[in-house]
Design a binder for these strands. Sequence first.
DNA 1: GGTGTGACCAGCT
DNA 2: AAGCTGGCCACAC
Length: 117
Amino acid sequence: MQQSYSRESLSFFEKVYEVVKLIPLGRVTTYGAIAAYLGSRGSARMVGWAMNASHNSSQPVPAHRVVNRNGILTGKHHFEGYELMQQLLESEGALIEDDRITNFRELFWDPAIELSL
DNA sequence: GGTGTGACCAGCT
DNA sequence: AAGCTGGCCACAC
């Protein structure tokens, strides 16, 4: 762990990890939703990039529960196996068809809403 | 310390 | 209607 962010604020990556870890089992969210929750709507790419660095995190990050706004498993190629992400989601109750979550709207978990209750 | 990059999103053509 | 472009901002070299 670098101490570059030894200040009170955690790095952007850490914030993303915290939010992703709060995603309930069987639920999914989007990069944009996380970015919006963190304050920057347009920084959805940062969230995806944070996921790329999630391997650096000591604690496991359920990155498979984060998809794009269309419910498509855009980041599946970054997992160990191309089908690992899909298998994990299916094991949690998600219905995936052609790399897309069919019941995405039901499983969608918006941190800006859920965490503000 | 400038430049490039990235698992996205929304708007324009 | 579908494809392309820009924007956005934190991090690594």
